[in-house]
Each structure stands twice: as structure tokens, then as C-alpha cells.
Write a protein that binds this DNA or RNA. Structure first.
Length: 211
DNA sequence: AGTGCGATTGACT
DNA sequence: GTCAATCGCACTA
């Protein structure tokens, strides 16, 4: 990496200091809401790639749709780490899903990151996804992990510290936050555990769930 | 050891 | 709008 790029990278990193664990709400649904408008940043050899989180889903304690529902297994153990750790799993054999563990250590619950508004390193993400259209770069949980090159190796990573992947501060008002049922969850009709930035074109799901 | 399936995506009609 | 790809893992035996 050239000197200019290194300087640019350092400036961007300084711009997104990690969210300290103590700043994260302990309640899962509260964390899901809190993360809207915050930064997800990834350090790659080519530079920093990042985006603003515009859509999340909460998988709360005792949630039959949550992976922790039947107790700890080799796959889901990261959900039981104290809040702010990554839980990454492969869905449908094709798409990695990134979650942020919530609650306190020993309690299995988490927040799925579902969509980003691309911010830094857009050309890097375009290469990672092999597409150019900004709107589709990180609109969807499997797409954003592909854009940031996140896979199972990141499972268990502490996202509240500087590293290859972290949650960054963004203090200005994110905008109006909407709430809906979760995407792709059968028998979920009466919970509203999905949070999104209202009106954002970078949010996934049907139009009716983006307004 | 065998089986069924999913917190999705991309290609296609 | 429909539909198949693809594979780790949880569950059953």
C-alpha cells in the first residue's frame, strides 16, 4: 500500500472509533435499534471498507426463531459471548450472516446485520461483489458479508475493539427508524423485531417494509 | 452414518 | 413473479 493510501486508511479508522462495549444496550431489541446508523468497518489489505448500518433484526432471549433457542452448540457458541462479539454462520450453503451477540455472557441472543449504506472503500466492495450498482452492494445480509469479505473466520471476534472488523461510532442522528416483522421467518407475524432506516434505498425486503 | 433443511441470493419467465 | 444452488450442522438412530 502506498503512503497516500496508508494515510487515508488511518484517517478513516480514526473517524470510526470502536463503540465501547459499555455503550451497547444490554437488551437485544434495544441493541438492534441502537445499531441503526452506526458504522460497520472492515480493514482489508487494499484499505478500509465500511458502511452505515440501515437494517437489523433482533433474535431475543427465548426466541424460537433464534439459533440459541435449543442451547449452545459448536456453531452458535458465539451468541453466548458477552455483547459485541461476532456470530457468523453460513446460510443455504451460500451466504454468510453476521450477527452481533447481545445480552450478558452465557445468555444466547443476537442481532443480525441485514443491510449497509456503502460509505468507504466502495471500489473494494464492488470488486468483492463483482457488481457496480451502489444500491445492491450491501443490501441483504449475505451481500454485505460478501462486500466486506466476512466469513466464519470472524466468528467470535470482538467487534468493540479495533481489528479487522468493528462497529464504529457515528454520532449524528440516523433519521427515522421503522420497525416491522422479520424477513424470512415463518410464524413471526406478531413480533416487530426488525429495525430499519425509514425510506432508505439501501434497506432490503419488500417496499412495504421499507417505508 | 444418514437425513432434512435454512435469519439467501442470483438467474430466469 | 418462480426456482435451484449448495453445505454445514443439528437431529435421529
Amino acid at each position: 500500500m502506498g503512503r497516500a493510501n496508508a494515510l487515508k486508511r488511518d484517517r478513516q479508522r480514526d473517524g470510526y472509533p470502536p463503540l465501547a462495549r459499555t455503550e451497547l444496550p444490554i437488551d437485544t431489541a434495544a441493541l438492534a435499534r441502537y445499531l441503526i446508523g452506526k458504522i460497520l468497518a472492515r480493514e482489508l489489505p487494499e484499505g478500509i471498507a465500511s458502511g452505515r448500518i440501515v437494517e437489523t433484526e433482533a433474535y431475543v432471549v427465548g426466541d424460537a426463531a433464534g439459533h440459541a433457542y435449543r442451547g449452545m452448540t459448536p456453531r452458535n457458541r458465539s451468541l453466548f459471548l458477552e455483547r459485541g462479539h461476532a456470530y457468523v454462520y453460513l446460510a443455504y450453503g451460500t451466504a454468510y450472516m453476521l450477527n452481533v451477540s447481545s445480552e450478558t455472557a452465557g445468555i444466547g441472543a443476537g442481532v443480525l446485520i441485514r443491510a449497509l449504506e456503502p460509505r468507504d472503500g466502495i471500489p473494494i466492495m464492488q470488486r468483492n461483489r463483482n457488481i457496480t450498482r451502489l444500491r445492491d452492494l450491501a443490501r441483504g445480509p449475505g451481500r454485505l458479508t460478501a462486500a466486506l469479505r466476512v466469513d466464519r473466520r470472524f466468528d467470535g471476534l470482538d467487534l468493540s475493539r479495533e481489528g479487522p472488523l468493528w462497529l464504529g461510532r457515528c454520532d449524528h442522528d440516523p433519521g427515522e427508524i421503522g420497525q416491522s416483522i422479520r424477513i424470512g421467518i415463518a410464524r413471526d407475524a406478531d413480533s416487530r423485531l426488525r429495525f430499519y432506516l425509514r425510506g432508505s434505498p439501501f434497506v432490503s425486503g419488500p417496499i412495504s417494509l421499507r417505508l
